[in-house]
Design a binder for these strands. Structure first.
Lengths: 193, 193
DNA sequence: CTGATTTTTTAACATTTGTAAAAGGTATTG
DNA sequence: CAATACCTTTTACAAATGTTAAAAAATCAG
């Protein structure tokens, strides 16, 4: 899997969203660890609590869970994308979902509990992550729209148009991400579906 | 349509999420107008920008749009529920969606542009609305999960279990909310689908 | 209350999508 | 390189959902 997006320095990336003061940056730096994962390695176990905010540096990861024994991919993340299990991160509840590296992957991991505590001291941090999660929220609303009333073919075509990750991920992940079976996706791709 | 939830004072409701200081409350009060809408009245036009955060006091409202000429309900809101078109509110872009009162409805309207400006002066306001929108984000993720891989029947049953608004809204709105046709919903309700 | 309008259900049929199994590809590993 | 495992496509059939139209039921307006 060759990655096309340029790999941006993390703090340069943050600056494009909200330029923080030096104290906030310093405080955030303390919370950040960089971690490497092998292809298919589990980053966060199914059923765990989400206490880490990940940002992908290289490679890719997915959020997944099982429904009636079937592996379903709910979310993909690649360069500079955030990956969190929001339903756990913002409630403190465990989630039945997990995170897995799709590829050899490097990620930045931010301790969310420590981060949330720092919000009181560093308004800039709260501002930055508020804006980051607002973006995620908007992305989720757009995905909802696609799943609510588009046909399998429409969903696939829209994915092709709006993303560049279809080429680099197993189609079985794509199928469940679109809410369809592999067979159905194959039919669509062959032009007969 | 009889409403069962108790109608809570707006600021009492805010206090349950994040108790603000008196200055922040005072500043927020300046932005708030209360408005009444007739049944089926359009609150925000299709295609407009979302510059208002609504909170339903009595009655109910929905976010809707047209897909291939078909009216699709994306979201419902009742007592103390927020209603915003996130993809516009957080980007500034216009959205093809609109807001409509489902019933005789009273709503609190908060000017979002003014509110967002107040975030700099009143950290408490940014905190409160960050928490409010985090909740909305979580709700959206849960809805995504339901739409992604559950059958029409499962979606309907889950709606019955987790909400109390099915009784009080036209079924045609429920059907599109679940991503199915009215005919399909009728079949499910009759126990044959 | 009554006629008109809107909503919901039912019916018949078409289409889409799912299921299961097999075959063909591709990648991985010893 | 061969053997294995995994991924994708194909096939045949089943089930779910959509489409169109009409009837029945509920709601609304005068």
């Amino acid at each position: 899997m060759h990655q096309t997006k340029p790999i941006v320095n993390l703090f340069d990336f943050f600056d494009t969203i909200y330029p923080m003061g030096p104290e906030a940056k310093k405080a955030l730096e303390q919370l950040i660890r960089e971690k490497g994962y092998a292809k298919n390695e589990i980053v966060q176990e199914l059923g765990s609590r989400c206490r880490t905010i990940y940002i992908v540096k290289t490679g890719g990861a997915r959020i997944f869970y099982y429904k009636d024994g079937i592996d379903i991919t709910e979310h993909f993340a690649f360069e500079n994308d955030l990956i969190v299990r929001a339903e756990s991160l913002f409630t403190g509840n465990p989630t039945s979902k997990g995170i897995q590296a799709i590829d050899k992957t490097r990620m930045v991991a931010i301790d969310s509990e420590k981060l949330f505590h720092l919000y009181d001291q560093h308004h800039d941090l709260e501002r930055l992550f508020r804006l980051i999660f607002e973006r995620e929220y908007v992305n989720t609303v757009k995905r909802l729209e696609i799943l609510q009333f588009k046909s399998a073919r429409e969903r696939y075509l829209e994915l092709l148009e709006t993303t560049d990750f279809v080429q680099k991920i197993p189609l079985k992940y794509i199928a469940s991400y679109l809410g369809i079976t592999q067979v159905s996706l194959s039919r669509i791709r062959s032009g007969l579906g």
